[in-house]
Write a protein that binds this DNA or RNA. Structure first.
Length: 866
RNA sequence: GCGGGCGUGGCGGAAUUGGUAGACGCAAGGGACUUAAAAUCCCUCGAUCUUUGAUCGUACGGGUUCGAUUCCCGUCGCCCGCACCA
């Protein structure tokens, strides 16, 4: 009997329609079963999906389908991170409306994604640019403001001269804008901030509760928050301008307080600014500092520069001890107090500075085994190292730096010279953007009343539709009428805030909105958002490592802020489990005229030598490195092409095979072929034996080998999926199919299938279902299934099949494997030992010696030492 | 510079966390079926040697252990994050 090849183009749409018609993936908030919220990071609607999306959503979909089959009420929603600069760039370059451009992209991408068979609840879909979404975001902003979590203040901000907007510190990479790559300038502007620093410690402490987050991400966040413990004290000032009596300083090395030889302030320090008013030399020096770039290379090569102010500072422990005060280029204004205590012997920067300006160097402590003084390399041992303190308010003392710091802190606190202080690297989150395509900041500026919140009943403050992009700057500001309005307080003419929010705000709470996107009056519905009847935290969040800091930290802040403002009940952390998947990478190809796409070439492989040539004219192509898919390198494959050629299931299967999901996966044509071959193989084996399988009993022990293989595969595949170890689950499925291939062939020939075989095929289809859902439905229907496999429960394995009556133990002699011993599982230690020693290869390996010792690890191994 | 991670066949990767190294897949080679091809099926596939077997082998060098890819110390190489953070 000839069986037709499986045709995904026919089968896949058929099953998707069936799922839709049955509303299988629509989630009911009131369903009493245990809840499981699986979420993939929502995408920016850039125009078309790429293979990275396919991988991300496949991982999430396998989990969602699996969890659904194991009895959970699964929430698996989808939406769009739809505000952002590309829409404005498209508007400017192609003369389209950003809104239309965005929604049209969404339509296109939605169409593409639908063909992949992801089990999303589309009824909950929204885009962050929907007024029905950002209305609530504006409400959150106002509530945060009311609760002291928002602040408007003048600040030195990062200005991107190309994108014509300010950037958050996190969006400045090596001194350049993260999108434009333009050199960022410093400007003084009045801007809106979320006071994320008010939660530094909570955000740090919360990391310890995130057991299912990668350590790497937690570490990155911890470093980013950057807590340091130290001493806060004040220098007295001698000869400083009026109003500057004291100079507050922070140091993490309280133990070096007896070794400073200078003090320094930042060029941006208020005292420096004050001095500049009277002294043109100071002005010149500060200007020189500002001219120095902030790029990586520039910082590394930057000379230490100082300007001696002539002012003296007095040491807190001894007012007669004075030090010179410098303005120094390496002191940052936005960390600590913008002033430092310079202890050259134990800080390389201070030492470089001291050597340049001929300042004294005082050794505070020395190594135990040397009396040498510091030369050009500062002595900075680990804090746990024991050293000899020679410059130490008293007798020389041998102790660790840690101990010395503790003693010093205690001394300074007791004497009233300073206090312990905790300092964080984290800065407040600047959210104002001078852009059009973002959520408007719902504030009205009135000359009489100041910044006034837009009343709740006037939300949303909607973006105007009629905007132009023919000149640089903010279209909202240019708009002829939009910003003019009445002050809600006094009714006089006032102006709307023309800034929009950083788009990271949009993605900081969308996961909460998905729990009830229909609530028109409130951002969240408290009965379903979290707590015993609600969804949050997200049980498994899946996305790229590139969001390790920004998006995830902001979301963690938002959850805390939403709880404070009554928009959440109990939840502390948004994402209970986090999984960061790797990229999809591909070989690159370089032809005579530059990079060429994989579709344009042909690869031949003879005896392991791979060569490539252009399809068009056969000219040779150089096979380059494996890199992240990018348009510039042309090493992209289009998901549409893959689906057209192989179908969605093959693409999904490939994404799960071979590479562990947290690592990069290399997309290859051969791999895609192999995935497709396996899909066809399953179909052929099942379809050819379908008649036999249909008439077989559903459960049975009539073929031990098959039953064992099936139950074992079922157990390990379930466990692997729970661990998101999809590559291992895939390997187990290959193994199972290898076992079933021959019996299925026989069944097809004889028309008879054992009950065990039928059960094994049931298991196989159930296990394949989360990964290749369309194929699973087709197979299930072929062997007589009536309800859809997507609606059926995950089968139960029988533990009885997991144990063998006999075990085969590897036998080692002196640590080297010499053979195997098959023995009853219940055999006790002495029986195993006796049987081992009786083996001829053991005797031979012992060469007549008496065994000194026999180590029997039950069910594992035997090692004879002789 | 600081912090973190990784290193296993030609390739992607397994190895029950101290117990048979190389599962599974790819690539390659050989064979069967076929007029032929495709598809499918079967076999081989870490290295070396004196090849019914043995020795070596998880970046390199040591160590702990009956036993180490796994733990410890050192070296080399690669990757990631942060970076004048006091």
């Amino acid at each position: 009997m000839a069986i037709e090849r499986y045709n995904p183009r026919v089968a896949e749409p058929k099953w998707r329609d069936a799922w839709d018609a049955a509303k299988l993936f629509q989630t009911d908030n009131s369903d009493p079963r245990p809840k499981y919220y699986v979420l993939e990071m929502f995408p920016y609607p850039s125009g078309r999906i790429h293979m990275g999306h396919v991988r991300n959503y496949t991982l999430g979909d396998v989990l969602a389908r699996y969890k659904r089959s194991t009895g959970f009420n699964v929430l698996h929603p989808f939406g769009w991170d739809a505000f952002g600069l590309p829409a404005e760039n498209a508007a400017r370059d192609k003369n389209v409306n950003p809104r239309e451009w965005t929604y049209s992209n969404i339509e296109t991408m939605k169409g593409q994604l639908k063909t992949l068979g992801f089990s999303w609840d589309w009824t909950r879909e929204f885009a962050s640019c929907d007024p029905s979404y950002y209305k609530h975001q504006q409400k959150l902003f106002l509530d945060f403001w009311q609760h002291g979590l928002v602040e408007r203040r003048a600040a030195k901000v990062n200005w991107d001269p190309v994108d014509m907007t300010v950037l958050a510190n996190e969006q400045v990479i090596d001194g350049k804008g993260w999108r434009s790559g333009a050199l960022v300038e410093q400007r003084d502007l009045t801007q809106w901030f979320f006071k994320i620093t008010s939660m530094s410690q909570e955000l740090l402490d919360g990391l310890d509760t995130l057991e299912r987050w990668p350590d790497k991400v937690k570490l990155m966040q911890s470093n980013w928050i950057g807590r340091s413990d130290g001493l806060a004290f004040e220098f007295g000032l001698v000869g400083a301008p009026a109003g500057f009596e004291k100079l507050p300083v922070f140091t993490t090395r309280a133990d070096t307080m007896y070794g400073p030889t200078f003090a320094a302030i930042s060029p941006d320090h208020p005292l420096a600014t004050e001095l500049a008013k009277k002294n043109p030399e100071v002005v010149a020096f500060i200007e020189k500092c500002h001219q120095l770039g902030t790029s990586l290379a520039e910082i590394e090569t930057a000379e230490k520069m100082g300007f001696d102010t002539g002012i003296k500072v007095t040491h807190p422990a001894d007012p007669t001890w004075t030090l010179p005060l410098f303005i120094a280029n390496f002191v940052l204004m936005d960390y600590g107090t913008g002033a430092i205590i310079g202890c050259p012997a134990h800080d390389q920067r201070d030492l470089d500075f001291a050597r340049k300006y001929d300042l004294p160097v005082i050794d505070v402590f020395k190594p135990l085994d040397s009396d040498a003084s510091v030369g050009d390399v500062a002595f900075v041992p680990p804090k746990t190292e024991t050293v000899r303190y020679v410059q130490w308010g008293g007798e020389p003392t041998v102790q660790t730096c840690q101990e010395a710091m503790e003693r010093s802190l205690a001394l300074f606190e007791e004497a009233g010279w300073g206090q312990r202080k905790v300092q964080y690297r984290l800065r407040d989150w600047l959210i104002s953007r001078q852009r059009y395509w973002g959520c408007p900041i719902p504030v009205i500026h009135c000359d009489a009343c100041g910044a006034v919140p837009v009343p709740a009943d006037q939300l949303p403050v909607e973006l105007p539709a009629d905007v132009t992009f023919d000149r640089p700057g903010n279209p909202l500001d240019h708009h002829p009428t939009w910003k003019h309005t009445a002050c809600p307080k006094c009714g006089r003419q006032a102006r709307r805030d023309t800034d929009t929010m950083d788009t990271f705000v949009d993605s900081s709470w969308y996961f909460a909105r998905f729990t009830d996107p229909w609530n028109a009056s409130e951002p969240t519905t408290l009965s379903v958002v979290d707590g015993s009847t609600g969804w949050l935290p997200v049980a498994q969040y899946i996305g790229g490592i590139e969001h390790a800091i920004l998006h995830l930290l902001y979301s963690r802040f938002f959850v805390r802020a939403m709880k404070k403002t009554g928009h959440l009940n109990v939840v502390e952390e948004p994402f209970e489990g986090l999984f960061t998947q790797g990229m999809v990478v591909h070989e690159t190809y370089k032809g005579p005229d530059g990079w060429v796409t994989p579709a344009e070439i042909k690869i031949s492989d003879a005896d392991g030598k791979r060569t490539a040539s252009l399809l068009a004219d056969g000219s040779p192509v150089e096979i380059g490195g494996i890199e992240k898919m990018s348009k510039s390198k042309k090493n992209v494959v289009d998901p549409d092409d893959i689906i057209e050629t192989y179908g969605a299931d093959t693409a999904r299967w490939f994404m799960l095979s071979d590479s562990p999901p947290e690592r990069d996966v290399i997309w290859t044509e051969a791999g895609a072929d192999a995935a497709h071959r396996f899909l066809q193989r399953i179909w052929r084996l099942v379809a050819e034996a379908a008649d036999a399988l249909r008439s077989a009993e559903g459960k049975g022990a009539d073929d031990e080998a098959i039953a064992k293989a099936a139950h074992r595969a079922l157990k390990s595949v379930g466990e692997d999926i729970e661990k998101l170890a999809f590559n291992k689950a895939v390997a187990r499925l290959y193994e199972l199919v290898n076992v079933l291939a021959a019996p299925l062939g026989t069944a097809a020939e004889t028309g008879k299938a054992s009950a065990a075989l039928r059960e094994a095929v049931d298991f196989l289809i159930a296990m394949v279902a989360p990964m290749m859902p369309h194929l699973a439905e087709e197979c299930w229907a072929a062997i007589g299934g009536t309800e859809m496999i997507a609606a059926r429960p995950w089968p139960q394995y029988d533990p009885a099949w997991l144990v063998d009556n006999d075990v085969t133990l590897p036998i080692q002699v002196n640590g080297k494997k010499r053979g195997d011993l098959t023995i009853s599982r219940d055999a006790d230690q002495s029986a195993v030992e006796a049987a081992t020693l009786a083996l001829d290869f053991v005797q031979k390996a012992l060469e007549g010696r008496q065994p000194k010792k026999v180590i029997v690890v039950p069910q594992r191994i035997v090692n004879v030492v002789g």
